[in-house]
Nucleic acid binder design. Structure first.
Lengths: 256, 256
DNA sequence: CAGTGGTCTAGACCACTTA
DNA sequence: AAGTGGTCTAGACCACTGA
């Protein structure tokens, strides 16, 4: 059932300008669908109802549902298969690994590289001020700190520090093993789907720890990726700082 | 007039699978529009015909034209204004500067910074092997090398080396002054519109020249952006290597 | 074969711009 | 008032999937 009724303006002789914050029908429908995914009514991997069924349920035309689902698909929130149906996207697929992991070999190959997992440590503690700012946490909130190394072609190339709010991911510090793609864990176990990641890139010097882990001289330039991942509801849910040895691999972006 | 007739399959009792490389109508229409822009039949800033007029001309429905134009708009190739019409995008606008210039202040501000131009040198010479590979040039082709400094808040923060095929941009080395956004010059004077830029980011050490220009110690880590810009027809038209002092500014990306 | 998403059409009405 | 893009509908037919 619909939580909030759609407000239909076009075709109802109501001047749109008289409605504050008016959104066209297809955007309202889109918002309904996002809420269903983000609140778990539609679960990752599950098939969602057909366009026709949704159109009937919401009392709109199939074209309007389709336009909303086009947007969902372009944002990788759903996956559509002609003849089969539409499915809530899972972060477990290989494509999800590469969605947020943009390291690749340099030109001319430019192929994405598949990182392996190296050493890993996990502990929980109180959040410091920077962490509270990044993750919008209250004073005294607890966080989990994960540190790990990523290998490429067997050699350590990236060190990562990952900070998670323990309140959002209870017991994650007690997991025996963490997967290569944490985002599938967030989604599968905790129902948290990442919608966008905001990254800031800098060049920094390797400190002693970086240098030892990566087998470099201290002071060697590293590419630092400072990323805050945001969930479907807009809440920041992960702060991750990766430092990469970019002598053999690069961070690849296509700007449109 | 249409250069190549559209091949209509749907609705013509022709099984689509029997046509090799079949593209749906709206994609064919999209390709026609891109060609018109890339070949200059529709010029930057100019209004293009209305959806109805284009639908009549091409013998398709307005909805099909709209779908093609939706794609163009999402790629920033055209600009649509309700009540006014659709216009070929110009690279002269402020938004175009930021489209390919992604340096910003760090969180929490995260606002884009507007770079000023510092020193600049321009010379032309034969392309070396790397340049020929990057720009797909023939042996003996000539290139223009532009070196310049970009200032942020008045202080030099970025050094750039820009390599252009002289064949594509004849006389560009004789221009008195080059604009801050070269892409507007490429488009306005030479009819070359950039569709995508492929960037590779690395952390590197400042060499002596970098250090002197940026007021740093040699060896200081710099963020190196290695970018090849590609025109609408798929041809690489610019190779640019920027080295940035990222102590006060960062390269900002939002990954969806 | 029925059901799904993908393509395409025709037409209505709306809001915005310009004249 | 006329013309533009924006929204929305209803319906046809297509290609693909799985029973």
């Amino acid at each position: 059932m619909l939580e909030v009724p759609l407000s239909r303006a076009y075709g109802d002789k109501i001047p749109v300008t008289s409605i504050p914050d008016f959104q066209p029908l297809y955007k309202q429908v889109y918002a309904v669908f996002v809420r269903r995914i983000s609140e778990g009514a539609w679960r990752p991997g599950q098939a969602i109802p057909s366009e026709q069924a949704l159109a009937r349920e919401l009392g709109v035309s199939q074209g309007t549902v389709r336009k909303a689902m086009d947007t969902l698909a372009s944002e990788n929130l759903i996956l559509r298969r002609q003849g089969k149906g539409s499915f809530v996207a899972e972060h477990t697929q290989e494509h999800a690994l590469f969605r947020f992991f943009r390291l690749a070999r340099p030109r001319p190959a430019r192929e994405r590289v598949t990182p392996q997992l190296g050493e890993e440590t996990v502990r929980s503690r109180s959040a410091n001020d920077v962490e509270r700012a990044r993750l919008a946490l209250r004073k005294g909130a607890r966080v989990v700190e994960i540190r790990r190394t990523r290998l490429i072609d067997g050699a350590p190339k990236v060190v990562e520090k990952i900070i998670l709010p323990l309140g959002l991911f209870p017991g994650i510090d007690k997991q025996r093993t963490l997967p290569n793609t944490l985002y599938s864990l967030y989604q599968g176990v905790y129902g948290v789907s990442i919608s966008v990641a905001k990254e800031e890139l800098r060049a920094v010097r390797a400190n002693k720890g970086d240098a030892k882990t990566l087998g470099l001289e201290p002071g060697t330039p590293l590419l630092q990726i400072d990323r805050v991942a945001v969930a479907l509801d807009g809440q920041p849910v992960e702060w991750r700082v990766s430092r990469c040895d970019t002598r053999d691999i690069v961070y690849a972006v296509d700007v449109n």
